[in-house]
Write a protein that binds this DNA or RNA. Sequence first.
DNA 1: CGGATCGTTGCTCAAATGAGCAGGAGATGT
DNA 2: ACATCTCCTGCTCATTTGAGCAACGATCCG
Lengths: 316, 316
Amino acid sequence: MAEQVGGPAQVVLTASVARRYYLDGRSKVEIAEEFGLSRFKVARLIDAARDSGLVRIEIRHQGVIDVDLSAHVQDRFGLQHAIIIDTPDDHAESLRQHLGRAAAELLSEVITPRDVLGLAWARSVSAMAKALPRLPGIPVIQLTGALSLPNDDDSSVDAVRDVARASGGRAYLFYAPFTVPDATTARALRQQPEVARAFDQLGLVTKAVVGVGLWECGQSTLYDAAEERDRRALRHLGVCADISGVFVSADGEAVKTDLAERMIGITAEQMRAIPEVIAIPYGTAKAPAVRAALRSGLVSGLVTHTALARALLDNG
Amino acid sequence: MAEQVGGPAQVVLTASVARRYYLDGRSKVEIAEEFGLSRFKVARLIDAARDSGLVRIEIRHQGVIDVDLSAHVQDRFGLQHAIIIDTPDDHAESLRQHLGRAAAELLSEVITPRDVLGLAWARSVSAMAKALPRLPGIPVIQLTGALSLPNDDDSSVDAVRDVARASGGRAYLFYAPFTVPDATTARALRQQPEVARAFDQLGLVTKAVVGVGLWECGQSTLYDAAEERDRRALRHLGVCADISGVFVSADGEAVKTDLAERMIGITAEQMRAIPEVIAIPYGTAKAPAVRAALRSGLVSGLVTHTALARALLDNG
DNA sequence: CGGATCGTTGCTCAAATGAGCAGGAGATGT
DNA sequence: ACATCTCCTGCTCATTTGAGCAACGATCCG
């Protein structure tokens, strides 16, 4: 870089040639004829122009997507899709809306009429559902029960209904909590017609959208809703992340838990069978969980913000 | 420009491909293999990236030369060389120094050991001479007499001596004024051995450096030094510019004048015979004169500053 | 002055590339 | 439902382009 290209006349000639080539799109042969040079000379001038920095090529996107970081993350973690939203925002609610919108765009871009869509419970998934404009008429399957949140009227059901309405396709939804007090109740609930009907479709799901939580206080709605016994038990088992109810350790292994028997939701195996699972995590604190989720191979798409993406790369 | 490239996934893919192509210098075939696309698809993505503005290519020079303007001027006026110095400066002395330095660089770039260099009298030529670092050992010919300026110790002779010293070549210099009171004196001076020896070389000159003046008060040292009678007479003859003593009209025709008989200097025909004549004008006021000089075809190289170059293009 | 070395130039040949085209999928109007 | 339209894809073939090479000229030393 920044080597010399010679004297002023040389500089002007080089710049003219580079302009004709890069900006006017002429071929080197044409340029050679125009300037009375050999095409080799033209090629060398253009190389010199690039090497010397006289020609500067930059790739950027005047929008919310950090294309470079997105590509880097996608490449680094071998993802099918990675969308990194460039926002300095760190307010959870606002972040969720931004990411929801981006995820909605991504989904409407990658979904085809032959897809079957699965939605897990997560606030970011709800945000996406609300931002979704229109979709082909595809079936939408609810993947998990819902957690009721104090300050929020969203639920897994709402998201499924929203999306099904946007698509005009069949909605497989049910009303059930994410966790129940005992395994028996859970089994009973799974027998319930609506639940059973939805779970029967699980094997057909081709694309799913999930959230990611870190198994720590305030970093996972599932953690926050769990009893202290379960929190501890799972921590002891090495649980690092919950991917909409699927537990994985820091090194990306699915972890079998007692809690699973008391949950209404998709299993690790079922999730692994889904060709594309898009996660929408946010907050730098969750970086270890996201790393675990990516390592597990369960997640193949990521929609998140710059700060978290950088955290992933810095120590990933 | 600025068309869409599709959804976020598309944007990220396009950016990745464009990065590999433009920044990493991979071939489209390689990229196609890497991303599992056809090479045609890759080509279309790259085109889209350019059209949409995702890839921006700019050509600039982080230096004093405005390469774009230079190329434009060179093209517009069919010049062999055009160097436009980007400076907001409008102080004559400072401008002269900048242009002198640039002209010196240009000269040392284009001069070859087989050239014969001619120097006319002009303050900008002196400035160039002072800035000249080294040159092949070529003959240097003085083209005109000198005008003595009140606040300036430079003269045509000094410039010739400076350059000859820089080159180590033979200097054909003489001590004579640019204008004399009558034609007889002028003829007598031309008979003078030193003058005659220099003028004998005129036909051999292959490159020359000259100044340009506008035939108005304060815009030409020759005008300022002339008597009121001559000023008027030449204005009546339609003289617009003096190119180191060669007079041309606004439409670029050489103008024959009585004054010429009282001058010690190169004629229009002799100047036309020189393959490359580089002019170093400055000051926007001189735009009409420079335009005339360019139109005359006597000048084939230009070293000047942005303001004057823009003035030339705006109304040229 | 002769010889060595370095950079520059234009060549050949194989690979990369662009223009234009035909087939197919999806959208649209009747 | 059907015909038509449009857009997208990947093909062929001719052109453009790059890598490496040998000849040339200039410069530098001995």
